[in-house]
């Protein structure tokens, strides 16, 4: 699989991992889903270099990364906007660039957002674990985070025939405020009415302690009706878990599959790409959505 070259890490950056669509369906074995945190940007990177969306990309964290391609290829940088260079010369962000063998592609520090995605024609061909090449930082599955000098193989590019690849794609720069829709439950009854209101009226900020496991927040604590912890129960992606100190934690791709702190609400998966790009200090606002599932409109308190 390495016949088509690979990428050599020149500058790994703060944290750069291999990501794809993750390994859903194994939560009952204690295996986190993992996968790209900003799935929208991951899919876009693959689209722009002609890959299926399941191909693996590189996910950077705040400071970008630089890689040398060992054979001619096409690459693109999406996700968090950043200065892109090829051999030190400016190159477009969000547009595929043709690279000669030996060229160094650098994604600089994010100017907005957190995570940029480097897509390569053929995708990053790290070994699959349970069907996925994603690095799972909670349980240590998948390839190790990039380190300087590390080489990763690339796959064979998809045949170009028939697939229309756009030259450029629209992108919305992350705003000054992260708005997260929340459907209450399953454990909203562990909180007082005031606590439920605080979630959707309080001003929160993204904590610097956030990572691929969870987006932590700083802000008012949510008052609880009952103390203690739950017997371990399954935790969904997007769960807003509230530990005893009361600040909500939004579970992202590498979240633990079971937990013992109450989940006051769940953020739809479609909103999590934005969460992946919310830098520490970003304002966070939770907005209630009707729980369309089993309680109808019950359990949604008035916003004020």
């Amino acid at each position: 699989m390495t016949a088509d070259g690979g990428v050599e890490t020149v500058r790994a950056g703060a944290l750069t991992t291999v990501q794809d669509l993750g390994r859903p369906g194994y939560a009952h074995l204690g295996v986190p889903r993992s996968g790209a945190l900003d799935l929208t940007a991951h899919r876009l990177a693959n689209l722009l270099v002609g890959n299926p969306e399941s191909a693996a990309t590189l996910e950077t964290t705040l400071t970008g990364c630089a890689v040398r391609v060992l054979a001619p290829t096409t690459a693109v940088v999406t996700g968090a906007p950043c200065p892109v260079t090829v051999d030190g010369r400016p190159a477009p962000w969000g547009q595929p660039v043709r690279l000669r063998a030996g060229a160094v592609l650098e994604a600089g520090a994010a100017t907005h957002g957190v995570r940029s995605y480097l897509g390569f024609a053929g995708g990053v061909e790290a070994d699959r674990v349970l069907g996925s090449r994603a690095t799972d930082l909670l349980s240590g599955l998948g390839p190790a985070p990039l380190s300087d000098g590390a080489v990763l193989p690339l796959g064979a590019p998809s045949p170009a025939g028939g697939r229309a690849v756009p030259d450029v794609a629209p992108w919305r720069v992350p705003g000054p405020e992260l708005v997260l829709p929340v459907g209450y439950g399953p454990r909203d009854d562990w909180f007082t009415a005031e606590g439920l209101r605080t979630l959707v009226t309080g001003t929160y900020r993204v904590s610097a302690a956030s990572n691929r496991i969870g987006l932590r927040t700083e802000g008012p604590a949510l008052a609880r009706r009952r103390e203690g912890e739950l017997a371990s129960e399954g935790m969904p992606l997007g769960a807003i878990q509230v530990p005893p100190e009361g600040r909500p934690v939004l579970f992202l791709a590498d979240h633990p599959t079971t937990g013992g702190y109450p989940v006051i609400g769940v953020v739809p998966a479609a909103a999590l790409s934005a969460a992946a790009q919310a830098a520490p200090g970003t304002a966070v606002r939770f907005t209630p959505v009707r729980s369309g599932s089993v309680r109808g409109s019950a359990g949604v308190p008035p916003p004020r």
Partner: peptide, 18 residues
């Protein structure tokens, strides 16, 4: 998508529709 048992619960997540 997921059937995740816990100590006193079973989580059923990601049905095709609400």
């Amino acid at each position: 998508g997921e059937i995740v048992p816990g100590a006193r619960t079973v989580l059923l997540d990601e049905f095709g529709s609400s």
